[in-house]
Amino acid sequence: MNMRKQSLIHLDGRTVTLIDSGTDDHGQYLLVEHVIIQQGAMNGPHWHPVLQEKFTVKEGRMRFVIDGRETIVEQGGCITIHPNETHQFWNVSDNRLIALHEVRPPGQHWKMFEFIHKLECEGKLNKKGVPLNPLWLGVAWKCIDGYIVGPPRIVQTVFLGGLARLAEFLGYRI
């Protein structure tokens, strides 16, 4: 499964770099590096039924809220988010943040990073990073391998999953 190293450079200067992917003694994984220039939220609150994520802060500081518990991770520290834990994270560094992000199993996470980058570069996201077109929203939702906080899981599965199926039927591709 090893993918070739590549970087996605966003309009605001942040980068997501594919470091490694494959299988080891603990199963399949994806390892990416995030370099974030601006302070603030890096995502909205969400959860994954299967994925486990581990963040290691190489430079700067990250704030996490996991199942309502707030934690600050300093340079050299790490934190693991287990399946079904609701989480959100922020860059709270004085300067830039550099963090390694390990995802097990990788699911569609790299596709998600590539897809959101593509939509951003094409001007198809709002200021919060959400696709403007509901069909692209369905495709993006399918890539997160999880659920956003708020709408019940069944509503997301039916509505956003339905948008994803309609988008695919109409030829929308990642």
Rank of each mutant, 00 (worst) to 15 (best):
I79E: 04
C121L: 15
Q39P: 03
Q39K: 08
T71E: 12
E59S: 06
C121R: 15
K128Y: 14
V50S: 06
V65T: 12
K111I: 03
G77C: 13
G60T: 10
N91W: 00
I98Q: 07
L125V: 09
N91M: 02
V65W: 01
Q88W: 00
E74S: 15
K128W: 13
G60M: 08
M112G: 04
V57G: 07
W110T: 07
V73S: 07
E85P: 07
P131H: 10
G123N: 14
Q75E: 13
L97V: 02
E102P: 09
V92C: 05
L97T: 03
W90Q: 08
D94N: 12
L137F: 03
D94Y: 02
C78L: 13
K111A: 07
Q39W: 01
I116N: 04
F115G: 14
V65D: 05
Q52M: 12
N91I: 02
G40W: 01
E53Y: 08
V103Y: 06
F55L: 02
R63C: 02
L125F: 03
P106F: 01
G40P: 04
P49I: 15
F89P: 01
E74Y: 15
V50T: 11
V130D: 09
I79H: 06
I98V: 14
N133M: 05
E120Q: 08
G123C: 14
E53I: 09
W136H: 13
M112S: 06
G44V: 07
Q39F: 00
L137V: 00
K58P: 00
I66Q: 10
W90L: 06
V65M: 06
P83G: 03
M112Y: 12
L51I: 12
R69V: 12
V57R: 05
K128E: 15
E53P: 09
N91F: 00
I116G: 02
E70S: 10
N43I: 00
C78D: 15
E85M: 13
H46D: 10
E120A: 04
I79N: 03
N133A: 07
P105A: 02
A99E: 05
D67M: 13
G68M: 11
C78E: 15
G77K: 12
G123M: 14
F89L: 07
L137P: 00
R69L: 11
V92G: 01
V103S: 06
T86L: 14
M42C: 11
H48A: 07
K124P: 02
L119S: 03
F115A: 15
K127V: 15
D67I: 12
L119G: 03
W110S: 06
L132N: 05
G44M: 11
P49R: 12
